[in-house]
Structures are given as C-alpha cells and as structure tokens.
C-alpha cells in the first residue's frame, strides 16, 4: 500500500473513532436509547408501584368477613359482600344485554357491511365514538333515559349503563375476528347448500369463537372497574338487595364512597375492595393474553 493511501486510511479511522460527527451520532444514539429505556422502565415502575400500594394497604383488609358481611356503619365490622354481589349482578345483566347486541351488530358490520354499505360505515364510526365517549356521560345519558322516567335509581339502570359501555368493545372485536375468517370457508358452506344465516352462525362465528370470547371478556373487565356511570344510575346501597328496581350497591362505587371517608375501617375496606377489583380485572386480561398467544 502506498504511503498516501495509508495516511488516508489512518485519517478516516481517526475521524471515525475520535470526535467529529461519528462520535456525536454515537452519543446521540446512546442518549436517545437510554432515555427511551428509562421511559419504558418508568411505566413498568408505575404498574409495580400501583400493585405495591394496593397490596401493602389492601391485603390487611381482606378476610372472610370482607366478602360475606354487608356494608355497615363505621366500627360495626361491616364488609363488602353486598357490593361484590351487586357488581356481579349488574355486570352479568349488562353482559346479557350487551353480548347479543354487540355480537349481532359486529356480524352485520363484517358480513353485510362491505365497502359500499354507507349505513355500515356510519354504524362503524358511531361504535367507535361510543367506545371513546367519556363513561360519565353514559351515566348521565342513562340517568335521563331510565332513572328520570322511573323516578328512582335502580340496579337495572346501572346494568343498562354498563351494557352501553360494553357494546362497542364487543362490536369491534366481533367484527375484527369475523374478518379473519377466510372467504373460502364461507364459499364452502354456501356450496354445500347452507343458507347465509347458517354459514354465519355455524361456520364463521364458530371458527372465530375464541376471538369473540376474548372481546366479551375484555368487555367484562372494562365494566367491572367502571365507577362513573354507576354513580348516577344504581347509586349504591348499604344493605343486601337483590331487587333490580331499587338502588344497588357495587364494588367501585363502594370504594369511591369509602376511600374519602374519615373512618379507618372504611378506608381499609376501600383498599381491600380496590385490591380485589384490580386483581379481578388484571386476571381477566392475563387470561386473555395467554389464550391469544396459544
């Protein structure tokens, strides 16, 4: 190699390794990488901090009495049993209303709502609007729609409010999952002489079963933690009540009432309830993710 070539090579090497643009680029890359890892770690730490706060404050309040006794005045050894039962009843009833409606609407959008079906694209958009609508407004809406005409708060109104929250989630997942079913399967069904409803219900829906169930589970998780819409509809109740036409307790509303109280045992119960509800919701999400991976 000639002298000049060697010099040039050395110069290039120097420019690459010390100072100059390359160094700056490398440093910038390090800084950016480090910062973004820090951002991700921060979010994970927030999750851990929330879980730690819940466990450290809530674990002491969880006992058999917490889930079996009804809410009571401070110092009376009350629990959250009626709130848990109320939450289960309202969520179940809401699911019974929302699941068929969301399912059918999702089927319509996927099976009948092609590119040129303007009605379907409007419905699709409306469902998205409903999904991102503030939940407190859903509560106000059901208050106007159900509570005002009836003249009193009721567990049924709470269930309707939760159903309105759940429908768009189910619609979206049902449509997305049905779209993944290959067209050839529909054609095969039709070729065997099956009518369209049969193809949809027995073939498409059946093969998309897992995904559709996932959507319904996610909707349950969303309903379980909602507080704002229940404040104006089922109101909350201090005693055991199974009547749907009367105010009904629910876990999130009970937490909301107790968390701001100045009695230690109420605050303790609020944290216990918060721990229960978070565990439930996160458990559903973990199950969904695990089954989706399989």
């Amino acid at each position: 190699m000639s002298e000049t070539a060697q010099q040039m090579a050395r110069a290039t090497k120097q420019r690459w390794h010390q100072g100059g643009r390359a160094r700056r680029r490398q440093v910038l890359d390090r800084i950016a990488t480090g910062t973004s890892i820090a951002a991700g770690v921060f979010l994970v730490l927030v999750l851990l901090s929330i879980l730690w706060t819940l466990l450290s404050r809530g674990l002491a309040g969880i006992s058999w009495a917490t889930v079996t006794h009804s809410m009571g005045p401070p110092g009376s050894g009350g629990g959250l049993g009626n709130a848990i039962l109320g939450s289960i009843i309202q969520t179940g009833l809401a699911l019974a209303m929302a699941a068929p409606l969301g399912l059918f609407c999702g089927i319509y959008l996927s099976e009948y709502g092609g590119k040129h079906n303007h009605f379907a694209s409007v419905v699709r958009f409306v469902s998205d609007v409903l999904m991102s609508a503030p939940s407190i407004l859903i509560g106000l809406f059901i208050y106007q729609l159900v509570v005002v005409p009836w003249g009193h708060f009721s567990g049924f109104a709470g269930a309707v409010a939760l159903a309105v929250l759940a429908v768009p989630v189910i619609v979206r997942t049902t449509e997305d999952m049905l779209r993944l079913v290959p067209t050839s399967m529909r054609e095969a069904g039709a070729a065997l002489g099956a009518p369209r409803w049969r193809v949809i219900l027995s073939l498409c829906l059946r093969s998309a079963r897992q995904g559709v169930l996932t959507g319904i589970l996610l909707a349950v998780a969303r309903m379980g933690g909602e507080t704002a819409p229940l404040l104006f509809t089922s109101l909350g109740n201090q005693t055991w009540s199974l009547r749907l036409d009367k105010p009904m307790a629910s876990l999130p509303v009970a937490i909301y009432q107790y968390a701001g109280a100045s009695y230690d045992d109420w605050v303790q119960l609020a944290w216990a309830g918060a721990l229960l509800i978070t565990c439930g919701v996160l458990m559903i999400n973990i199950i969904v993710r695990l089954s989706a991976r399989r």
């Binding site: 979010l43 999750l47 404050r57 933690g225 909602e226 999130p252 918060a274 978070t278 919701v281």
Partner: peptide, 24 residues
C-alpha cells in the same frame, strides 16, 4: 414481557389510578 406490563397498566380501572395518585 414489557409489552404485557404496559397493557396491564392500561387495564387498571381509573378509580385505582385515582386512589394511587391521591396516596402516592
């Protein structure tokens, strides 16, 4: 793993965020 954690953070009910915010 991190993606799952972030998704779980998104699933935490908002009232829990309120209580956590108030006490932390």
């Amino acid at each position: 793993i991190i993606g799952t954690a972030v998704q779980l953070l998104a699933a935490v009910p908002s009232i829990i965020f309120g209580m956590w915010g108030f006490f932390t």
